[in-house]
């Protein structure tokens, strides 16, 4: 497992816990706002980083050889 995957799992778990905590406990307004402003995008992004398909090892080099300039 590479570091990107580990970080994504940690962020996903943390943001899920934070959002659920705000749902269950009635915290102060500003805490809920902070959690939702950072937590919701972090949740979506880390979930995406886990669900996205990785290129095959032999194609990996070719895939990052962007940007495409039309030739």
């Amino acid at each position: 497992m590479n570091s990107q995957k580990i970080i994504s799992i940690i962020v996903l778990v943390l943001s899920t816990i934070a959002i659920l905590a705000c749902l269950v406990i009635n915290l102060e307004t500003w805490i809920v706002y902070t959690v939702s402003i950072f937590g919701i995008p972090a949740w979506v992004l880390s979930l995406g980083l886990l669900t996205m398909a990785k290129p095959k090892p032999e194609d990996a080099e070719e895939r990052v050889k962007e940007p495409f300039t039309g030739y």
Binding site: L45, T51, M52, A53, P55, A60, V64, K65, E66
Partner: peptide, 18 residues
């Protein structure tokens, strides 16, 4: 798009790009 193959370009400015 969340399930599509994704790579990050070699030339990109990494933390900003994501």
């Amino acid at each position: 798009f969340f399930f599509k193959e994704t790579g990050f370009p070699k030339t990109a400015s990494k933390p900003f790009y994501i």
